[in-house]
C-alpha cells in the first residue's frame, strides 16, 4: 500500500489562535482512518486544513508526495480530495439534483454518477427536483455525501456525518459506508461516536488539544487506551 496523504508537522491557526500543533499523520491508499477526539480537539480544523479551506505551510500537507498545504480548496479538489463538511452545508438555492451535479463539476472520471448515487440513496431520486432545504436532516446528509462522491474522489473526508441525526438514520448512513469505500476509495472519518468510528475503520488517530494523543490499528487498541487519549489522562 502506497502512501496517499502525509501530514508533516502541520500547524494550523485561526488568526492568533493556534488549533493544531505539529501534527504528523499518514494515510495509505485504500485505508479507512478514523479521527476521534473531544470537542475542540482540532478535528474539524484538520479536515479544513487537508481540504484547503484553511491554508497552511505548503509542505505541511502532502498528497502523493506533492506539497498541497498552501493551495486553495478548489485546487485541492482537483487532486481528487472531497470533503463532506460538518453540518451538511448544502447550497440552498440549488435543488437536490443540482447539488449533486455541482459535486461533479470537475468532471473526474470514476464509478460515481447521478445514477449510482440514486441507487445508493433511492429517496433522493424521488426528491431530486425539490429544494435541498426541504429535506430532512438525514436526507440532507445523503445529498452531502452524494455531492462529495460525484467528484469521484480518491480521498474522501467525512466530518461528523452523524451529528444531529436520529440513530436510525445514522445506522442507515453507516450501513451505506462499506458500499462507498469498498471500491478502494480512501477515507478519513471524523466522528464523535467512537464505537461507530471504530466499526468502519482500520486505523484510528485520536486528537487532543491539537495534538495526536493516540495512533494505531483499530483492532490493537484497547478501550482504556482510547479513554486515556480522549480525556488526556496519563496512560
Amino acid at each position: 500500500m502506497s502512501e496517499l496523504l502525509a501530514l508533516v508537522g502541520l500547524n494550523a491557526h485561526y488568526g492568533d489562535f493556534q488549533a493544531l500543533y505539529g501534527l504528523d499523520m499518514s494515510v495509505s491508499e485504500g485505508e479507512v482512518v478514523a479521527i476521534i477526539g473531544a470537542n475542540g480537539a482540532g478535528k474539524t480544523t484538520l479536515m479544513r486544513s487537508i481540504s484547503g479551506l484553511l491554508q497552511n505551510a505548503s509542505e505541511a500537507v502532502n498528497y502523493r508526495g506533492q506539497p498541497i498545504g498552501a493551495l486553495r480548496a478548489d485546487q485541492v479538489a482537483g487532486f481528487g480530495i472531497a470533503l463532506v463538511p460538518e453540518g451538511r452545508q448544502l447550497f440552498p438555492s440549488l435543488s437536490v439534483e443540482e447539488n449533486l451535479m455541482i459535486g461533479g463539476k470537475l468532471g473526474r472520471s470514476g464509478p460515481w454518477s447521478l445514477k449510482k448515487v440514486y441507487d445508493l440513496f433511492p429517496i433522493l431520486l424521488e426528491r431530486r427536483n425539490q429544494a435541498s432545504t426541504s429535506l430532512s436532516g438525514g436526507q440532507q446528509q445523503m445529498v452531502a455525501i452524494g455531492r462529495a462522491l460525484m467528484a469521484n474522489p480518491e480521498l474522501i473526508l467525512f466530518d461528523e456525518v452523524s451529528l444531529g441525526l436520529a440513530p436510525v438514520i445514522i445506522r442507515q448512513i453507516y450501513d451505506a459506508l462499506p458500499g462507498i469505500v469498498g471500491d478502494g476509495m480512501t477515507a478519513m472519518i471524523v466522528e464523535q461516536d467512537i464505537k461507530k468510528a471504530l466499526s468502519v475503520s482500520s486505523r484510528v488517530y485520536c486528537l487532543q488539544e491539537g495534538r495526536v494523543s493516540l495512533e494505531g490499528a483499530t483492532n490493537d487498541i484497547t478501550h482504556d487506551q482510547i479513554t486515556a487519549a480522549y480525556f488526556g489522562l496519563a496512560s
Binding site: 452545508q89 447550497f91 438555492s93 463539476k105 467528484a151
Partner: peptide, 17 residues
C-alpha cells in the same frame, strides 16, 4: 449553478472545485 453555489456559500463552493 456555479453562480448560485458561490453566492450561497463561497467556502463550500470552493470545495466543489
Amino acid at each position: 449553478r456555479g453562480f448560485r453555489a458561490v453566492s450561497d456559500n463561497q467556502d463550500i463552493a470552493q470545495l466543489m472545485g
